[in-house]
Write a protein that binds this DNA or RNA. Structure first.
Lengths: 194, 194
DNA sequence: CGCTTTTATTGAACGATGTTCAATTGAATA
DNA sequence: TATTCAATTGAACATCGTTCAATAAAAGCG
């Protein structure tokens, strides 16, 4: 069989990454296989290699769209009054992680093979997220130099990521039950010097 | 063939996890396969299943020993004068990550299958590391309640983890080149309120 | 409309993976 | 020496990512 054209090429690519995202959000990275995506959209495994370079490529695409979704959520939170933004942003971040734990995990669980780099469009997407947060919190860091602000934002960002990662893999609960959100708020407060 | 007894059972188990660690530190989680570990120690693949429940078990064992090694390094740094400990601990942490990037990555890159939990001995090992840091930095947090100290330490811990993770997977370098160590120091300073 | 060209799609094939388990064989025991 | 025991094997199974010659359907053309 050939040239079925049940779907336009772009449409088919979307269909495939949607199917991949569905599988990943249900079963995580471990359950995401080429054959299962193909089966889900009713095509042969080989077809996916016309749409994506390989499975890693498909995963990176899905991760990219996860970053986009996170951006939407954070942008919404950034509309709050400047003094409220730290709390709102942290809440939005953890809401996002909790609503899509497996997709969010895949963002960091997946590693490209040694020597391969993320595609060119990925890093700007990440930088845009950071810029969004930096702009939202700018009014609260007016006494800081540009470099200092940059460092604060990146540290906050990485810190929230660390808290969420350990929470999701349940490597955070030790003796006492520690709420990830509270740690997030604590982190942001201290990083903003309040 | 059977009962070769070239090695005592415990000895063989050590041999296998050493081989696994060697492979992982050279090629990361992706290169760590049952067959390659078996080949490296001169046994058949099936033999590994007498020593470990499965590949996940072997990985968790290696991760456990990585935590131990990190503990040794941090304990050494904690011997410094109380005021120097924040800097020394951060330096020790990043030294460790940079000296074993792939082993350290495996600590967080690896996820057990859905529903499976880390073994009972793993969580205490993690808690001991946190306790070490908490004790070392206790003198610098005397104005804090026990709960507050706990939260500060865990947040620092998760934050360092986040910074290192993003740095190792090169998702930290955005516009300007940001040194992970400096971010680590910044984080710890602010979390300790200095 | 028929013929040719193009190309999207297939699915068998390859090598590699984790895991199982009956068979084997060396050591320990009697 | 004969028997029991258990450590070790390696073939087998299902699955994986990936490739690619074959194919069939659409598009182009006379």
């Amino acid at each position: 069989m050939a040239r079925r054209s049940d779907h336009a090429p772009d449409e088919l690519k979307r269909l495939a990454s949607d199917a991949g995202r569905a599988i990943a959000s249900e079963e995580g990275l471990r359950g995401l296989t080429v054959r299962r995506v193909a089966e889900r959209i009713g095509y042969a495994p080989g077809t996916l290699y016309n749409l994506f370079a390989n499975l890693d490529d498909l995963i990176v695409q899905i991760n990219g769209s996860t970053l986009d979704a996170l951006g939407v959520v954070l942008a919404e939170a950034a509309k709050a009054d400047p003094e409220d933004r730290p709390r709102k942003l942290v809440e939005a971040y953890f809401d996002f992680v909790e609503s899509r734990p497996r997709l969010w995990s895949m963002l960091f669980e997946h590693r490209l093979p040694e020597g391969e780099d993320l595609p060119d469009w990925y890093r700007p997407k990440l930088a845009a997220l950071l810029a969004l947060v930096a702009e939202a919190l700018g009014p609260l860091m007016q006494d800081q130099t540009f470099e200092a602000r940059q460092a604060i934002i990146v540290t906050m960002w990485a810190g929230l990521h660390g808290i969420s990662t350990l929470a999701v893999s349940s490597k955070l609960t030790l003796v006492a039950e520690t709420d990830p959100r509270q740690l997030g708020h604590l982190l942001v407060q201290r990083m903003l010097g309040r």
